[in-house]
Structures are given as C-alpha cells and as structure tokens.
Design a protein around this nucleic acid. Structure first.
Length: 398
DNA sequence: GAACTACGTTCTCCTGCTGG
DNA sequence: CCAGCAGGAGAACGTAGTTC
C-alpha cells in the first residue's frame, strides 16, 4: 500500500463544514473517508482524470483571453470574501504523496493562490459537481473576455509567494496600464500598504519590462515603446538614470540617493579638480527642485555618502556637506552621470576659489563649466582626467 | 511627511507523539 | 503502518510607532 503524507492547510471554516457534510452524506460517516475525498478532489481539480485534456484546452483559451483558469472556475462561486475574510479551519489529513506534490505544483503554477485556498477550490468543486460544471463556467467566461495573455505560468515551479503574486499582478495588467490600475491589482493580490505597493510596483515593472511613459509618469508602457517615444520627442530615455526621467514622487529611495550622487558628480565634472560639495539646501533645490524636505534631503545625503569617492565633511559653519572626488568615484556612477562621455567638454576651467580638499559650492560655478578659454590645453587635461577615471572601477575601488 | 523598524498575525511546512 | 493531533519555525504581510 502506498504510504500517505500529511496535508496541513487552512481552508475557510464554512467550506470545510460543507465538505465534511458532503463526505458524511456520501459515505455515511466521515472517519476514514476524509483523506480519500480530499485526494479525489485534488486529482480532479488538477489534471489527473480522463477529461483533463479537454479542460486544458479550455484553459489555453482562457489564458489567451487574459484569465486565470482557477479564477475562471470559481469566480462566481467562491467570492474573495469567502476566501480572505472567513474564519479558517486547519485541515489535516493524509493523501497520496504524489497527489499532494502534483496538487501543490499545480496550484503554484496555475494560480496565485496559497495552497489552502487552492484546496478550498478543489473541495468546493468536488462537492458541487467537479470538472463538468467548471468547464462549462470557463466556456461561458471565454465568451465575455477581452484580449490578454498569461505568461510564464508554465514555469512557476518553486516560486516564492511574492513571485507568484507578482506574476498574478502581471497577468491582471494589459500591455500598458496606469499607476492606479497597477496599485489596484497589487492590492487585490498582495495588499495595499505603502511598503507593499512600493515593493510590488518595482517587481511588476521589472518583470513586465515596462517603464513610465516619457510624458506621463502615471502611465506605464513597454520599455521599447518608451524608448521610441523618447527618441521621437527628445524626452528622457528609459535607459537614462531615474533622476533624469522620473518626477520626484515616483523615485524610490535608492533612485533618489543615486540621483544625488549623479548631480554632485556632474557638478564636480565642471571643475578642474573634479571635486564638488552639496549641502542639504543644494540637494533640495539642485537635485529635487525643492520637493524634498530638508530632513529627508539630509537623510539622502548621508546615504549617498556611502559610496566610493563620496563622503560627509563639515563645512565652515558646521553644516555637514556631501563631498565627491571624481577620481575616487566608481565607474558606474561616472557613467550614469555622463561624466566619462562628457568630461572632455565640461570640466576644465581657469580658476576657482575652491580649497585643496574639496570644492565648496561657489557663486558662478556653473558659469565656469564648459568655457573655452584654455581649449588648447583641454585635450591633454582631458586625457589625463579620463585616464584617472577609466582606471577607477568598483573592483579596484577602496 | 517619508522612510524605517519592531511587532503581531496568518499561513504553511516540518517534526514528533499517540492510538487503532 | 496509518490516521489524527499538536507544537514550533520560518516566510510574508499589515500596522503602529519612531526617526529624521
């Protein structure tokens, strides 16, 4: 006899009571039959009976119509409230280990549900008539569905819960979508708290390879399309640093910190010694156009200091300032700042009143960048500067 | 006000024990 | 050997409080 393994999942109490009644009605008692009926429900719900192939073909149609097969079968009979808000019962029984493994894999691959909810759907299907009714409902749904494609569900084995939910959110979205649509989908599948929205926004946009529309930050479009739009309209390209293409409110903290480094590096590139400093006020005004609160700008400044070539130094008035020395900065920062490509046009100047340790931000500093008064010396200076910059990589950085 | 952190809750897996 | 029960651990999420 095949050894069985334990199932230990939670299902809504009401559904479990109904299933227990079904078992009792079918067999005259519950004891000894629960495990068998749960196993049958699992087999039927996935693809282990003789009509599995037919339902699989229906599922393909559903996927092409932008629906999840599991949802399609249950949307009218198992409301979200019955799944999410009802009191749950911990269901523990024993089933064939292969059936349990296959069922778990099936739920993970084909749905965004946790296993207990997958079992709930299976139990409900078992007591309500099974595959025939499910297939009928799916066919009715296809008639009403709009276009859309499910992707990557076939390779969902071993995915974490976050990854499964990310896929589920992706499947709810069309080729392009608004921020509110994205956040609604995240709220349905993962939650609506700010940390959750931030986390899943990043995961989903990365997975779908979409970025903000060059002219509408609340609209997400495929990266390729955004690049086309950017080239047509001279807007920021998706490959540009976030600080150059996203409004302040849509930047993640990491992007803000990186943006601070880039702006300071660009400022330093205008100076002959490749050094510059930003105070809190500079970060607020120069980097974030006055959007960042002073305290927050200070926080970002300290984070930005945690990189090669950047450090905090005290100004003459005791104010902390973020300082950069380009020759010590990592190549990825220089590349994003455009310093490697642009330095030959920007950084040579005649005179400054900067001290030897780092350039205090000076009045008229911007005017000094890009001047031509010593053009004949620029090439030599550029060559030396670029040699220093090129030699600086994350690998050999201190 | 934004970001971070600690804590509580829920869910699932794992392990061990007991009784038939 | 199998079924049922129970406790602990870890993952994931939400919320309230804290920090700057």
């Amino acid at each position: 006899m095949t050894r069985t393994v334990k199932v230990d999942w939670r299902v809504p109490s009401k559904e479990w009571e109904a299933f227990s009644e079904y078992v009792s009605r079918e067999h005259g008692e519950i004891k000894g039959y629960v495990g068998r009926e749960v196993e049958k429900a699992m087999r039927e719900y996935m693809d282990a009976d003789e009509f599995a192939d037919i339902e699989e073909r229906i599922d393909r149609l559903l996927r092409a119509a932008g629906r999840r097969p599991a949802d399609a079968a249950e949307e009218k009979t198992l409301s979200e409230s019955s799944v999410d808000s009802d009191e749950t019962t911990r269901v523990r029984c024993r089933v064939d280990p292969d059936v349990k493994d296959e069922f778990s894999a099936y739920v993970k691959r084909e749905t965004d549900d946790r296993l207990g909810i997958g079992l709930t759907r299976a139990l409900k299907e078992r007591r309500r008539g099974g595959r025939a009714r499910r297939a009928g409902e799916k066919l009715r749904r296809i008639e009403d569905d709009a276009a859309g494609l499910l992707e990557e569900l076939g390779s969902g084995d071993g995915l974490s819960l976050r990854e499964k939910r990310t896929i589920a959110v992706c499947n709810d979205l069309s080729e392009q979508f608004t921020r509110s649509e994205l956040e609604s989908a995240i709220e349905i599948h993962a939650g609506g708290s700010d940390p959750t929205l931030r986390d899943y926004t990043e995961r989903v946009t990365e997975r779908l390879d979409v970025v903000s529309h060059p002219h509408n930050p609340d609209l997400f479009v495929p990266t390729e399309r955004a690049e086309e739009l950017a080239s047509e309209t001279d807007a920021a390209s998706p490959s540009d640093p976030a600080i150059d293409r996203k409004p302040y409110e849509n930047l993640t903290r990491d992007e803000k910190v990186h943006g601070v480094r880039l702006e300071l590096a660009r400022d330093a590139a205008k100076r002959s010694n490749g050094k510059a400093q930003f105070g809190t006020a500079d970060i607020r005004e120069e980097v974030f156009d006055g959007n960042a609160p002073a305290s927050y700008a200070r926080s970002l400044m300290h984070d930005a200091a945690d990189a090669d070539g950047f450090r905090i130094r005290s100004g003459s008035t005791g104010e902390n300032r973020l300082a950069v020395t380009l020759t010590d900065a990592a190549s990825d920062v220089l590349a994003d700042a455009g310093v490697l490509a642009n330095s030959k046009n920007d950084e040579t100047t005649s005179t400054t009143n900067e001290d030897a340790d780092g350039a205090d931000r000076v009045e008229g500093a911007d005017d000094m960048g890009g001047t031509n008064e010593v053009e004949q010396d620029d090439e030599d200076a550029d060559a030396e500067f670029n040699r220093l910059l090129s030699a600086r990589t994350p690998a050999n950085a201190d």
